[in-house]
Computed example of a mutant assay.
Amino acid sequence: MTQYAFFFNQKRCLGCKTCVIACKEWNESKRGDANLNRALTEATAGTFDTPASWGAGARADTLNGAHSKDILRRFDAKENWRRVTFFEFGTKAPNIAIVPLSIGCNHCSEPACIPVCPVKAISKEAKYGAVRVDSSKCISCGACRAACPWDAPQYYKDLQAEGPRPPMTKCDLCYDRLEKGLKPACVASCPGRALELLPVEEILKLHPNATRTALGFKQEDVNRTKPNIYFESRELFF
């Protein structure tokens, strides 16, 4: 098995969440709630239109037609396959720091999600070492979400809502893009070039000082699941 891993340079991350939006955009059709509970309708999405009184570009015209709401719906995806969180350090200026951390699924070498799935919907494939889910088998029991220390399995927010519950979805390493020789959407979109995805051997060769943890990353769970993510960790100078 060739194991691919993410490399996240915490020193270069801008905290802009471009990776989050790029992930939502690319994986719009794969999200679990894609056909359920669509909060943005033609009517509700219309509130995002530019007021006609603002002039140029405000009205639908004969050249461009009516404003499309589909692009707006993409950013209303309930699941967050990639997440950027912020951690605050220090209590008094100037010794204060706000440090970002960008993670998705870490495609662990010993995933906590696989053994707890009662219907064997989650597996680890051999070509890239990606942990993938067969949503057609998923029964939305939530066992994988409870087991994963990295919050990778994603469900529509309200699992208690009436009606059908969506299946679990998660980062699949942008498998479809890798098969075409492309980088994952999050990596390709990062303006600070803080993210990379490479085979583990190449990461260690290019970044010999890479660490297995960073500020905000839960070290106590690293040994348990062996996540495939490496870091250039931010340092605190106070």
Rank of each mutant, 00 (worst) to 15 (best):
Q3R: 14
Q3P: 00
F6T: 04
F7A: 04
F8R: 00
N9G: 02
Q10H: 03
K11V: 02
R12M: 09
L14Q: 11
C16W: 06
I21T: 10
E28F: 14
R31G: 03
R31H: 09
N37C: 15
L40Q: 08
T41F: 07
E42R: 10
E42F: 14
A45F: 03
G46L: 02
T47Y: 12
T47G: 15
F48W: 08
F48R: 06
T50I: 07
G55R: 07
A56D: 14
G57W: 15
L63M: 08
N64Q: 08
A66N: 03
K69V: 15
D76E: 14
R83E: 12
V84N: 09
T85Q: 02
F89R: 08
F89S: 02
F89D: 00
A93R: 04
A93Y: 05
P94H: 03
N95S: 11
N95R: 12
S109Y: 02
E110H: 09
P111C: 04
A112F: 04
C113R: 14
S123P: 00
E125T: 07
A130S: 08
V131Y: 06
V131Q: 07
I139P: 12
R145M: 10
A146R: 13
A147S: 14
D151C: 07
P164L: 09
R165W: 03
M168I: 14
M168C: 12
T169M: 13
K170T: 09
C171R: 11
D172I: 12
R177E: 08
R177Q: 07
L182C: 01
K183I: 00
A185T: 05
A185G: 05
C186G: 04
V187H: 07
A188C: 05
K205G: 04
L206Q: 09
P208G: 06
N209R: 14
A210W: 02
A214T: 06
L215G: 02
E220L: 04
D221A: 12
D221L: 07
R224C: 00
I229W: 02
I229F: 05
E232F: 00
E232W: 00
S233P: 03
S233R: 04
S233L: 01
R234G: 00
E235Y: 01
F237D: 15
F237N: 13
